[in-house]
Simulated scan of single mutants.
Amino acid sequence: MLSFLLRRLAWSALVLLCASLLTFFIGYKVPADPARMIAGPNATAETVRSIRHELGLDQPFLAQYGRFLGHAVQGDFGRSYKTEQKVLPTILERFPYTLALALAGLAFELLIGASVGLLAAGTKVRAIDGLASTFVLLTLAVPSFWLGIILLYVFGYKYPLLPLGGADAGPISLLLPALTLGLSGAGYYARMGRASLLEVLGEDYVRTARAKGVAPAQVMLKHAFRNALRPLLTMTALDLGVLLGGALIIEQVFGWPGIGTLAWQAVQNIDLPMIMGTVLFSAACIVFANIIVDMLYSVIDPRISVS
């Protein structure tokens, strides 16, 4: 286990290094001048040059990237060009909101999507399978922003049961954005769960268990269901890593103060330190979510060894 973790951490460090290099290079080549944006449109050329020199933007690419990397490994991603706030504390301030939305949204995705998919695969009633297929098509076809607006109109305006947006009302503010996020992704989990369970039900060990007279419920729960969870676990880990980097559309619709909105504002302002911070934070979330799911594989299926 220890050697596995060390190898994965080494590869994770390499992945993050490549992500930082690529992102920094793109920011360096963007045909926009952050110094001009900071100084304003009416600033003199001398003022712009002074700001560019102060920020180190007049240095070669390798010098700028080396300075950024040296500070980043110490947890210092610099200050935002726009707000002059430190990047990492700003991201960590938004992180609890992003984490709450990601976990609640994933809970809805699994609760709704996986339940529908596994029910469709485990029953022989064609009507249920047809309803499940219809549900999948609807959730995949409806844009998340439109679904969010409809839910806001119905439950926030027409029947004011829930807040119209923001996070000021406490945990209840999370319900509509999390439900929207869950419904938007539930179709993928339903389709994956159905396909995975049908594949497992066709395996030899399942047919052998049935031939030995094992009760259908026991075959489903003890043999098939557990093995059908592995693809869903992989998908959940990937989704969690992505969502921890921010769910921009949901955050914009509901005014949720997450990392996705922070990253989008940084891109609009050519705020390179904030862009680097949010991108690397998102990449780190995805990398470590994959490490965790690899370790969980051995818990779900003892035949799998992480070593």
Rank of each mutant, 00 (worst) to 15 (best):
L138C: 03
L240I: 00
A217M: 14
W146G: 00
F254Q: 03
M192D: 05
V219A: 05
G193I: 02
L131G: 10
I150V: 12
V253T: 03
I128F: 09
G122P: 06
L161D: 01
Q252M: 13
L119M: 12
S133R: 13
T180V: 10
S115D: 14
P231E: 10
A215F: 12
A247W: 06
V125G: 00
L138I: 13
A209S: 01
T236P: 15
V116G: 04
Y189I: 02
I249A: 13
G117R: 12
G241E: 12
A224M: 11
L176E: 09
V214S: 13
L233D: 12
A195E: 01
F135K: 02
D204G: 07
A247L: 14
F155H: 07
G246Q: 08
L110I: 15
G165H: 02
L244W: 07
V200A: 07
S144R: 13
A132V: 05
I172H: 14
G166P: 03
G241H: 00
P231M: 09
G182E: 10
E251A: 04
S144N: 14
W146A: 04
V125Q: 12
P171D: 14
S115V: 14
E199N: 10
D204I: 02
D239H: 14
P163H: 10
T123Y: 04
V242T: 11
G246L: 05
G117V: 15
E203T: 11
I249W: 02
A211D: 10
L179F: 15
L232K: 06
G245R: 02
R194W: 07
G165Y: 01
G165P: 08
G246V: 11
G245P: 07
K222C: 04
V142L: 09
T123G: 06
G122T: 07
K124W: 08
L221V: 15
K222P: 09
M220H: 11
G213V: 10
G193R: 14
R226T: 00
I172E: 14
A127D: 03
L138S: 01
I150R: 12
G187F: 07
A186W: 15
P160T: 10
W146D: 02
R191F: 00
L119H: 05
A190L: 06
E203V: 03
P171T: 02
S196V: 03
G241K: 04
G170Q: 12
A141V: 04
G245Q: 08
R194K: 12
G202I: 01
L151I: 05
Y159G: 00
A169H: 07
L152C: 05
P160Q: 10
M192N: 07
I149Q: 12
P231K: 14
A132D: 02
G202F: 07
S196Y: 10
A141E: 09
G113M: 07
L248C: 04
L131V: 06
V253K: 08
I128G: 00
L244P: 01
T139Y: 10
R126V: 03
G156D: 04
T234F: 14
R191V: 03
V214A: 13
A186Q: 13
A209I: 01
A217Y: 15
R191C: 01
I112V: 14
I250W: 03
E251V: 05
V154H: 09
V136H: 02
L179V: 03
L131A: 03
T139S: 11
A186I: 04
S133A: 05
G166Y: 02
Y188A: 08
S133N: 08
G187W: 09
A217L: 15
